Simulated scan of single mutants.
Amino acid sequence: MKKFLALSFAALTALSAASLDEIKKAGVIKIATEGVYKPYSYHDESNALVGYDVEIARAVAEKIGVKVQFIEAPWDALLASFDAGKSDAMFNQVTIKDERKKKYDFSTPYTAVYPAVVVKEENNSIKSKADVKGKKGASSATSVYGTTLSEWGAQVQTVSGFNQAVELVLAGRAELLMNDDVTFYDFIKNKKVPLKIAFKGQEPMLSAAIVAKGNTELLSAINAALDELFKDGTIAKISQKYFGKDISK
Rank of each mutant, 00 (worst) to 15 (best):
K3G: 00
F4Q: 05
F4T: 11
L5W: 10
A6F: 02
L12Q: 13
A14M: 10
A14T: 12
A18P: 00
I23F: 02
A26K: 15
G27L: 07
V36L: 09
Y40C: 06
H43A: 09
D44M: 07
D44K: 12
N47M: 10
N47L: 07
V54L: 04
I56Q: 07
V60L: 10
E62V: 04
I64M: 13
V66E: 11
A77I: 01
A89T: 15
V94A: 02
K102M: 09
Y114V: 13
E122Y: 02
N124T: 14
S125V: 06
S125D: 15
S128P: 01
G134R: 07
K135D: 05
G137A: 15
T147K: 13
G153S: 06
A154M: 11
V156W: 01
V159S: 08
G161K: 08
Q164M: 08
A165Q: 06
V169Q: 10
L170Q: 15
G172M: 07
R173T: 12
L176H: 01
I188F: 01
K189T: 14
K192D: 14
L195F: 06
G201R: 02
A208H: 01
I210Y: 02
E217V: 00
S220W: 00
A221V: 07
N223H: 03
A224N: 12
L226E: 03
L226V: 08
I235E: 05
I235A: 08
I235S: 06
S239D: 10
S248G: 06
K249E: 07
